[in-house]
Computed example of a mutant assay.
Amino acid sequence: MYSTEIEVRTGSVAVVHDLTKDAEAFLRDADAEDGILHVFVPHATSGLAILETGAGSDEDLLTALDELLPRDGRWRHQHGSPGHGRDHVLPALLPPFATIPVIGGVMTLGTWQSVCLVDTNLDNPVRRVRFSLLEG
């Protein structure tokens, strides 16, 4: 197994951050052939999604999360910025992991699919992302 961790600065606004190029660079560095790429975010307030970016889907996802998990005072988890409790529910909907098959050193993503970090936590602008390659 080959594994490494990167740091991602997400800033102070909710964001869908495309990790695809980082994942591709990791696979090149790992001299990958065939296997499984596992991506993991060791945080209680962010998740991963595989979706199309750049055509509005990333903003649609953030809008849907705002509607599903409003940033208001309803949350029992009350520390941090107003509505921060919703950020702790996010990983139940967008898990902190993704697994992608790798064939010939290339992720087998669909034409419009990207691997994305979804971070709605306004209180923590720095995230870690771990890439692990399980070859087989």
Rank of each mutant, 00 (worst) to 15 (best):
T10N: 01
V106T: 15
V16Y: 10
L93Y: 14
F26E: 12
K21E: 15
D72A: 11
V118F: 01
R130F: 05
L68I: 11
S114A: 10
M1S: 03
A55F: 12
I36A: 01
P125D: 13
H38I: 09
G85C: 09
I6L: 11
L93P: 15
D58K: 12
R86E: 04
S46T: 15
E52C: 05
V102Y: 07
T20D: 10
I6C: 11
G105P: 00
N124I: 11
D18N: 06
H79Y: 06
P95F: 06
P70Y: 09
R74V: 10
T53A: 08
T111F: 14
R128L: 13
I36Q: 04
L109A: 10
V16P: 08
N121K: 01
G54W: 01
S57F: 10
V115G: 03
L93N: 14
V102R: 04
S57W: 13
P125K: 11
P70D: 10
S132P: 04
S81H: 10
A49M: 14
P82R: 09
L51M: 15
E7F: 05
H84L: 06
A25Y: 03
I100S: 06
T111I: 12
A23P: 05
E59S: 12
G136W: 01
E135V: 03
L117G: 03
W75S: 02
H17F: 13
W75E: 02
L61K: 12
D31N: 15
Q78G: 14
G136D: 05
P82H: 08
G80T: 14
P96W: 09
G85H: 10
V115H: 02
T120S: 12
T120A: 10
L27K: 09
V118R: 06
P42S: 04
G136H: 09
A64H: 12
V115I: 15
S132C: 00
V15D: 08
S81K: 13
F131W: 02
T20V: 08
L37F: 03
W75Y: 10
V39A: 00
H88F: 01
S81W: 10
V115Y: 06
P70F: 13
